[in-house]
Structure formats: structure tokens, C-alpha cells
Nucleic acid binder design. Sequence first.
DNA 1: ACATGCACCTGGGAGC
DNA 2: TGCTCCCAGGTGCATG
Length: 280
Amino acid sequence: MPELPEVDHIVRYVRPRLVGRRITTLETPGGLPRGHDAPGTSPLKLVRGRTIRAVDRRAKLILLRLDQRTLVLHLKLTGKCWIRDADSAPAKSTRLRLVLDDGQALDVEDARKLGWFRLLEDEPLVAMLEKNGPEPLDPAFTLAFFRGLIAKKRGRLKPLLLDPTFVAGIGNIYADEVLFAAKLHPRRLASTLAPREVGALHRAIVTSLKRAVADRTEEVPDQTRVGSGARGASKHIKTRQVFQRAGEPCPRCGETILRTVVATRGTYLCPRCQPAPGPA
DNA sequence: ACATGCACCTGGGAGC
DNA sequence: TGCTCCCAGGTGCATG
């Protein structure tokens, strides 16, 4: 489900409710994703009795810092996090419930079971985090830095933006929003960008993500869909210029927004603002 | 080394 | 109501 702004929002929501709390029990009411052992036999059992010292985000990962170790959560496409009363009935798709010493619980739900969680010591944690690309909202993500990154790339822009080792945190929604903001077609080759287009792309990445983070100010994140399913839209659809808006007018020029497929992913664009590259 | 496309899962909506 | 088909916001890995 979530990309950088959504994961960031979830972290801001759970952090004050988790930091300083001790985990008393670990439950897996809806069954674990593939590859996970039962908690009684896996390293996950080691979370019991530990105190949550901090909650951080890196890329789309949620990091629950415990004593000595870190519980890493990846929500993938359909993962959600809720703070619930520990007495409440868990949702059907609850993969993990961490019961806390104040009677609350952290529920991790994931209908498609694509997400995962792992308890890691510092060394493997650092190795895992290093595989992610740079954080686009970090002050170090300057235009000069970005020029160096993209100079080595030749592929099409959409799959490049979706590559988590290129830049962290961008998914299918923000890839389309970024390319629209930069007025670049998703099939443009990175190697064909003029210097001012690289500048526009850099600016679009930073401003689109910053705005999405700043928009998410409610205390409890919107992790639901209205109308739901694949075509469902969260209430933040208002902040989207093109994504899932096929058939609607472009907010910039009024041309009809198109849906197409690029690198197997549904892709939305304005054909006038984002002219297609030549056949070559 | 780099680019591409599919596999991994399940569920919801549309159309018949 | 109950099919069947299509779609889904991520990423690791096999394949060119």
C-alpha cells in the first residue's frame, strides 16, 4: 500500500504510542507470510519483554528499535499498521499483533501477505539498509548529487523511479506524479534528458514527496480506500494530479489524462504536458 | 553491469 | 447471487 509519504505518516502515528512501551506478547492471529516461522520458534520470539526505544523510517521500512535489536517491517502493497485495544478482535488479515504493557497493541495487517517482518541485530540491519537508494528528502539529496546518480542511467524514467536502489521511497503513485510535475514522459530514456530536464526531475521528486508528507497531518493515517479494490482511492486522491484520474482533464492544460502500461505497471499521464519520445 | 519482466499472494470490483 | 476476469500503491531474482 504505502510509499514514502504514507510510511512516514504511519511512523508519526505509531511512534508516540510505542516509544517507551514494553512488548508483553506477540500474536499471529491471521497466519504469517510465507517464509516466516511460527513466533515460538523463530528469532521473533525474542521481541517479548523488550522495550521499544525508538521508531524510525528508512525507505519504505518501519524500524522498531528495541534493546540490542530492531524489528523491521515492510508493508509492501497492502500492509497497514493500527494501534488497537489489546482486547479487541484482530482483523482477519492481521499478521502480527504486538501487545504492549499499557493494554494497547500494534496490529500489522496485510491482506496479500507480500509484506514481511524481521528481527535484526545491528550488523545485518545496516547491511539491509545500505541496499536502499538515497533518501530523497535528506538535505544531501541535492541537484548536484542527483545529476551524478542519473548520469550513469540509460533506461526509461518510470522503471528507474520505481527502482528502490536508485532513489528510496518512490512507488507507482509518486512515480507518475513526479513525471507529471516534471513534464516528462514515463518512457523517456534517462540518457536523453537535457540538463534542465534533470533539474526539473530532481525538483519534482523533492517537492512532490515533501508536499505529500506535509499533507498528511491527521493524527491517524488514512490507510483505507474509499470505493476500494484496485481502483479505490484514499481521500488523498485530491492531492494527486494524474494518478488514477484517467478520463479527467489535466489540471494544467485540460487535455484528457490517459492510462497506459509502462514496464507492466499502470501509468497515468497527460499526453500534452508529457510528450512521448520518438520511436527510436 | 545494466535493463526488463515476471513471481510472489489475496481480495475487491466490474461485467455478465 | 455467483461466477470469471482484471486490477492492485513493492521488490527480488531470473533472464536477455
